[in-house]
Simulated assay, not measured.
Amino acid sequence: MDSTTAPRKRYAKTLERRSAVARAALDVVLEKGHRALTTAEVAARASMSETAMLYHFPTRDHILVAAMELADEDYRAILTAEFHVIDGGKADWPPPAMAHLTLDDQATTRLFLALSAEAVNPEHPAHAYLKAHHEQVIFEFTEGVKRRQAKGIADPKLDPDRVARQMMAAWSGLRMQWLIDPSLDLTAAVSQSFLALNGYPLMKFKQEMTEFMSQS
């Protein structure tokens, strides 16, 4: 037997077990909410002993982070890093699917915001996850702003990174408001905020003025 075969098999087995725990935990969150999650139920759903599971995930918080990371992966299978403005910027941006995923999945949104509150502690398992998550989302938002500037539907004078961080803050804050007051039209609020932060109203005004002057 190749000397590298055994380590590879052990590594694959570890990944399989970690994946099973993450999926079981996310299922519990989606069905019952993160507050109802117990290590015993997750272990049972993952078809392993609680002791074996805790070897890979030392605490309940580690398990919740694994569930949130898997939820992110699932979302990325639905959304892409592209944020399209359809019909000259008249349609919602970001795509309605971004807000609709939140509207359809309140349980995961509550988990994310709960972990966000805990992540301010550098020792908490969610700290590294939230830091990486924010960096990725801000990068994607930044690239989106740059693309819009290149298309003439975002103010070219804006700093894309700064706008991306403001967009991230708006997205997080509006989701929190929606959880507290579900009557808020989250899709419209997010789209309007993002378009405003990108300077779309100004660009639209300039475009209309240019068209008006060309017709005069």
Rank of each mutant, 00 (worst) to 15 (best):
103 L>V: 09
198 N>Q: 15
133 H>N: 13
26 L>I: 02
120 V>C: 03
113 L>P: 04
115 L>G: 10
190 V>P: 06
204 K>Q: 12
53 M>Y: 09
158 L>Q: 04
82 E>I: 03
40 A>Q: 05
58 P>Y: 09
30 L>Y: 04
152 G>S: 04
172 S>P: 05
34 H>L: 01
212 F>R: 15
169 A>R: 12
190 V>I: 15
186 L>P: 00
137 V>L: 03
47 S>W: 09
200 Y>L: 15
49 S>K: 05
15 L>Y: 08
76 R>D: 14
202 L>R: 15
170 A>H: 11
192 Q>D: 14
51 T>H: 10
107 A>E: 12
53 M>D: 05
216 S>T: 11
58 P>L: 12
114 A>L: 07
139 F>W: 14
162 R>F: 14
57 F>Q: 07
169 A>G: 08
42 V>D: 00
34 H>M: 00
166 Q>S: 12
70 L>G: 04
61 D>V: 01
42 V>M: 00
150 A>F: 07
174 L>F: 10
102 T>N: 06
46 A>H: 06
169 A>Y: 08
155 D>R: 13
194 F>C: 03
169 A>T: 14
121 N>L: 00
208 E>D: 11
123 E>I: 08
214 S>I: 03
162 R>K: 15
202 L>A: 15
215 Q>T: 15
210 T>Y: 11
67 A>C: 06
110 R>N: 00
215 Q>Y: 15
127 H>A: 09
190 V>T: 14
114 A>I: 06
